[in-house]
Design a protein around this nucleic acid. Structure first.
Lengths: 156, 156
DNA sequence: TTAGCTGCAAAAGGTTTGCAAATTA
DNA sequence: TAATTTGCAAACCTTTTGCAGCTAA
């Protein structure tokens, strides 16, 4: 069984070459990352996978993502609270709007300045991409913020 | 009841002025943040609090931290996987070593360059401090890394 | 044939919530 | 007195794990 997707097969080939077994579940997990929606959680990957094979378990998805990550083919990122999200390929920087949840993909080069400073000052090597940069996007920035209060619903 | 700690009382005064009630639990939570160890998790705050008053519940600690955060007196940060950590006062940037877990506190100014670029390019306003910068500290950097493999324990 | 994968179910954190009783202002 | 806060226990959500059966190589 193969998919007709060369991007999927390219990743699968690396799995095979690393001594991993090629299974339907693994091909579908990769397909979810290649063709599914951007920034999927494990749950979202499972939904994609299960659309084709309902019997594939969420735990298999987690284990497959973990295996792909160990090979350096996949990275996971935390976009704030809630589930981690997974993506293939080059590390890059995620910008997340805390108001509307929009995710912007920015280049890893964005942090070159910070990276150089941390290396010089603390001998610290930044691992780009494993953390998101949170903030407020342009669209939400125009909206006024309610001042905090301790009454009622706790100010939220 | 007061503590003898003016830093605690300063925070507590703000709670009172915001219309919040001042309780023993709240004072102890603030004291944990002022006098306890750096980067405490909710669990660690509870341990500090319960050293004085064993009956104070973990859920009260969470709710107090949430209330303090709503007032802008406390921030929480994710240093990677696992529990969030809490701190009083000025937002700053945390650097976390993924190998040994060491946390370095860096100035928020570290990100000024990134901040300016994101504002110009995406109209994105960075919320400093809510995310950690992960990487590898100088001490761990000298250690060699094992190459990934898909065999056995998954290369970890 | 035999590691390596998988499905299922249960466990394991970390955090939140419902509710009645206690407490603050 | 009235509204907020608290303790307790249970619920929740995401991720991990144990294990027996299945399967790719």
């Amino acid at each position: 069984m193969t998919t007709d997707d060369p991007r999927v097969e390219a990743v699968i080939d690396k799995v095979r070459r690393a001594g991993g077994r090629v299974t339907t579940a693994r091909r579908l997990v990769v397909a979810a990352l290649v063709r599914g929606r951007a920034h999927p959680t494990a749950e979202a990957v499972a939904a994609f996978v299960q659309a084709e094979h309902l019997e594939i378990a969420l735990s298999t998805v987690y284990r497959t993502l973990e295996a792909l990550e160990a090979l350096g083919l996949v990275e996971h990122t935390h976009l704030g609270h809630g589930s981690a999200v997974y993506h293939l390929g080059e590390p890059h920087q995620h910008l997340v709007c805390e108001d509307c949840g929009t995710v912007i993909d920015a280049s890893a080069a964005l942090l070159d300045d910070v990276r150089a400073r941390l290396r010089a000052q603390y001998a610290f090597e930044v691992h780009v991409g494993h953390f998101a940069v949170l903030g407020r996007c342009g669209r939400c920035g125009v909206t006024a913020r309610r001042p905090p209060s301790m009454r009622g619903d706790g100010g939220r």
